[in-house]
Computed example of a mutant assay.
Amino acid sequence: MKEYFQIKETAVTIIADERSHIDAAKKAIISHRDLLERFIYSEPYFKIAMEPYDVPENAPEIVKRLAEAGNIMSIGPMSAIAGTISSLAVESMIDEGATYAIVDNGGDIALVNDREVVIGVYAGQSQFKNLAFLIPPKDKITGVCTSSGTVGPSISFGFADAAIVFSDNVSLADSAATALGNSTDINSENIETAFEVLNVPNIEGAVLIQDDKMGIYGQVPEIVKADIKYDCITKA
């Protein structure tokens, strides 16, 4: 089963075997967004901070995860928002009994999969077309998060067509993808040096696409050819 769901700025595609699993994801998204909005109402700078941010111990779980991921990557907490929501939604699906659950929040994906999953790469006007990652079955949550300076509405200070990071910590994958994208400059010949920002624990691997260059860092899933359909991309 597959359903598109949007609430305010959050637009996700949810995939699961059971309707109850999709419903669990939607409830989790609504609940955690509400907690985040309440926190931001009390601390409005949290939403726009571009640097590490300390939060109180009694902060909601979503706020703690955002702050932790941003702090690790030395950037603002909202850099992890899409991946964190995806992860919390998939965790709720697992609590409902799901062994196959995917939440794609505009290219920031959390999944648990008891079968192979193919995740396509969209890198805008880059020459790299119809590439995908073959994700093997796993019994724990995996994060596949993407940032871009040329595609989509997210804030990026770099020039990457696609900065993709893999980590079992989905919040960290999201912040790390942002940091990786930020580290690119207009000269794609320097693509290798951008990976230096990923020298932190728990990053499994990354792929960086810029213009006619593609770099690979660490361990990444098998890259395969696939027929990438633009209509399948989750967007608001």
Score class of each variant (00 low, 15 high):
residue 67 A to W: 00
residue 75 I to Y: 06
residue 111 L to D: 10
residue 75 I to Q: 07
residue 60 P to N: 09
residue 78 M to T: 13
residue 144 V to C: 09
residue 57 E to C: 07
residue 107 G to L: 07
residue 161 D to M: 07
residue 87 S to H: 05
residue 56 P to K: 01
residue 133 F to N: 10
residue 78 M to S: 08
residue 110 A to S: 14
residue 98 A to W: 04
residue 96 E to W: 03
residue 56 P to H: 03
residue 58 N to C: 09
residue 149 G to T: 12
residue 70 G to D: 08
residue 74 S to V: 04
residue 125 Q to M: 11
residue 74 S to R: 15
residue 134 L to N: 14
residue 68 E to T: 09
residue 100 Y to M: 09
residue 129 K to H: 11
residue 113 N to C: 14
residue 56 P to W: 01
residue 142 T to S: 15
residue 76 G to W: 02
residue 107 G to Q: 10
residue 163 A to E: 04
residue 120 G to P: 04
residue 104 D to N: 15
residue 95 D to F: 04
residue 79 S to D: 12
residue 131 L to Y: 12
residue 75 I to P: 04
residue 110 A to I: 08
residue 102 I to M: 15
residue 107 G to K: 04
residue 137 P to T: 12
residue 54 D to W: 00
residue 115 R to S: 13
residue 59 A to S: 15
residue 153 P to D: 09
residue 143 G to Q: 06
residue 137 P to W: 13
residue 149 G to S: 12
residue 159 F to Q: 01
residue 158 G to E: 05
residue 128 F to P: 06
residue 98 A to Y: 07
residue 65 R to H: 11
residue 112 V to R: 15
residue 70 G to E: 04
residue 162 A to I: 11
residue 104 D to M: 12
residue 65 R to A: 04
residue 87 S to M: 13
residue 121 V to A: 06
residue 57 E to G: 15
residue 99 T to S: 13
residue 119 I to P: 03
residue 63 V to G: 01
residue 127 Q to R: 12
residue 156 S to I: 06
residue 60 P to A: 09
residue 127 Q to S: 10
residue 106 G to Q: 08
residue 68 E to V: 03
residue 82 A to G: 10
residue 69 A to P: 00
residue 67 A to P: 00
residue 79 S to W: 03
residue 144 V to Q: 07
residue 123 A to W: 06
residue 110 A to L: 12
residue 153 P to V: 08
residue 106 G to Y: 02
residue 118 V to G: 08
residue 107 G to Y: 02
residue 126 S to Y: 00
residue 130 N to S: 08
residue 94 I to R: 10
residue 91 E to A: 03
residue 59 A to K: 00
residue 58 N to V: 05
residue 155 I to T: 10
residue 125 Q to E: 15
residue 81 I to Q: 09
residue 156 S to Y: 02
residue 73 M to C: 06
residue 148 S to E: 12
residue 156 S to R: 04
residue 138 K to N: 14
residue 65 R to D: 08
residue 130 N to L: 07
residue 60 P to V: 09
residue 55 V to W: 00
residue 129 K to D: 06
residue 90 V to G: 11
residue 57 E to Q: 14
residue 90 V to K: 07
residue 94 I to L: 11
residue 92 S to H: 05
